[in-house]
């Protein structure tokens, strides 16, 4: 079964970082707010609303197009798959900067981009249903 995650109600976000921590625990077995595929952003002061960001699972992903080594393969259902043997962890950050909402980050330890594996933990650990996690039709 194929699943998809979407940020549907960002205005509900309370800034608890439960999604970020859950993602980091799931993907890397650690707690690290910068090793994650879900991001919590604010603009300027914390008086401004939070903006949770995840991969948008684009049909024609710009990150994949930007990769000079074709390490990011577009998936038929949207989103990307990483072919680690091709990724050189290049420091030009082409894939990272290609994403307009900056939903991709380079993992500082593995030097690979962190790819959402659609586990749904961010949605599971959100107390206010900011995310929608559903099976793709």
């Amino acid at each position: 079964m194929r699943f998809r995650i979407e940020v549907v109600r960002p205005e509900r976000c309370i800034g608890c970082y439960s999604c970020v921590y859950a993602c980091s625990r799931h993907l890397f077995n650690t707690v690290d707010p910068s090793r994650t595929a879900v991001f919590l952003r604010t603009e300027g002061s914390l008086a401004n609303p939070f903006m949770p960001v995840t991969c948008r699972f684009c049909k024609t992903p710009e990150c994949a197009e930007a990769c000079p080594k074709d390490a990011l393969q577009p998936l038929p259902e949207g989103g990307i798959m990483l072919i680690t043997s091709r990724c050189e962890g290049c420091e030009t950050f082409d894939c990272i900067t290609a994403c307009a909402i900056r939903a991709l980050a380079l993992d500082k330890k593995t030097k690979f981009p962190v790819i959402c594996d659609k586990c749904g933990d961010c949605a599971k650990y959100c107390p206010h249903n900011v995310f929608k996690y559903e099976e793709m039709k």
Partner: peptide, 16 residues
Amino acid sequence: ERKISCPGCPVACIHL
């Protein structure tokens, strides 16, 4: 207007 949390707490007790 809003309620917010500390990182790591899903409660949101801070009332604004």
